[in-house]
Design a protein around this nucleic acid. Sequence first.
DNA 1: TTTAATTATTGCATAAAACGCATCATTATA
DNA 2: TATAATGATGCGTTTTATGCAATAATTAAA
Lengths: 293, 293
Amino acid sequence: MDARSLKQFVNLSDCLHFGRASEASHVSPSALSRSIKRLEDELGVDLFERNNRSVSLTHAGRLFLNYARDTLGDWDAIRNKLMEESGELRGEVSMYCSVTASYSFLFEILTRFRRDHPHIEIKLHTGDPEDAIPRVLSGEEDISIGAKPQNLMAGLAFKLIAVSPLVFIEARRKKGQIHSGNAQPEAEEWAGKPMILSERGLARRRVDQWFRALGVQANIYAQVAGNEAIVSMVSLGLGVGVVPQIVLDNSPLADTVRVLDIKPALEAYEVGLFTLEKKLASPLINALWSQLK
Amino acid sequence: MDARSLKQFVNLSDCLHFGRASEASHVSPSALSRSIKRLEDELGVDLFERNNRSVSLTHAGRLFLNYARDTLGDWDAIRNKLMEESGELRGEVSMYCSVTASYSFLFEILTRFRRDHPHIEIKLHTGDPEDAIPRVLSGEEDISIGAKPQNLMAGLAFKLIAVSPLVFIEARRKKGQIHSGNAQPEAEEWAGKPMILSERGLARRRVDQWFRALGVQANIYAQVAGNEAIVSMVSLGLGVGVVPQIVLDNSPLADTVRVLDIKPALEAYEVGLFTLEKKLASPLINALWSQLK
DNA sequence: TTTAATTATTGCATAAAACGCATCATTATA
DNA sequence: TATAATGATGCGTTTTATGCAATAATTAAA
């Protein structure tokens, strides 16, 4: 019995799926499978009824779940109590953000945090920015960086880091190259312009809304995963793209594209931190949270 | 945090001595030292104030001790609850006895126990029979096999396995060899007989009492550690020895010595199991305990 | 009924952790 | 000052845990 195994057990109890629970626990499915098996061997009872298609708690598993929750709570409690004693925070916080966000915001956030709390370990995971909120909601990560959605779901806390306009970009004309068409196209012209957009995500939804509001049918040339790829395609002259300004600020291709001053502007990206409100009770997470602004 | 480390921590808190606590935990002092260090690192506080000569709990250590005791209790509780569920006992029991006792009694006890409870692991440790009671009292072992002392200390439970007379032995005369002296010597003769005795232990105390009661001064030829060694020396004709009958029953030298019928006889050895009374509440220990007789 | 897809488990090689032994450093005792 | 006691530490070995790839079992689709 150790806190790690218990957490893994609770994670599996919550989602009843080895694959997902193993992600939530940041281990491979095989490691989780063995962990659970170890627990079952140690206790001498099966905790889960499982075949290759379904997982469910046994009666013993339900009893043990109560125990595990309590024990993890106690463990947190004593650790917090002793941290107060020592006046120094210590432990680990898991964090999730896109690679872009890690370039833009993370360094600044973490350098100060590391100085103030050298014994809080940050476990950073990067990936699709769209997963920022789901990962926090599922408990897979303590904190994530992402764009604030239209409406925040209950229990989710958000803290603004920066506002970055969502801008239209096109390839910067090479010297001597003739500009074909208007620099500030009218709505009607959009129907003709090939657009390069995120295949999904907040930026995409904003753009879709924008076109809908204008009553214009977009001519979508490419749907791309990742803002960097949009910049890249736009710089090749394949069409007009939409990315947050912050992406341009950190892009090596920034000077190969130019920002179009289009009205009405897209609603700006509000980039910030997400966490579960209840997690703000944790001194560790609170330390990171309240450091900002 | 795992049950093992917590138990080690509690053991050290109890005796405040790495060497002894490591024995109680059945690990080397270095392993214990590292274990405690691991805990301290994990928690970020010192649990013990220690220099090379003294160990004491810090304030944080006292807080953590409460936590550790509770957590170990909860762990025991859930394990017991789940064991009830499964109807099958599982876990481990530590046991201590002399090598002699392991030959004489252990096989019989354990074969049946293993059949009835195949998932209870017995951790057997052997050594000086005199340590049987101290080891149980200190909590170092759950159960031990040994001889019942004059008076049992409070809290200690005893269960008789066998009664074995404490007998005087001398070398069996070889065929044709002339017997020098009386087969049943009178008290006065003892003063002349060279005695081979345990250097300590219950048998030795009984023999000392016996001589004192007779008002005779023993002529001690050799003080030996271990009953087997006594049999061996006696069989070589070096003197008269005193051993429990059970030792002869299991000795390869048994037919090289003979038992003297001496009055008054020494009080018999009552060999049995020891455990702390409070430990009988544990289903595992109770299973072993109540299996007998 | 057959095929494909999903998913928990397991064999195997590797990596990490724990352990014991011997040694060291420190401190009390004689 | 010398000696004994005792907790920490370097180092080589053993044990344990992990991830990857392959497997087996089950459901859904064709």
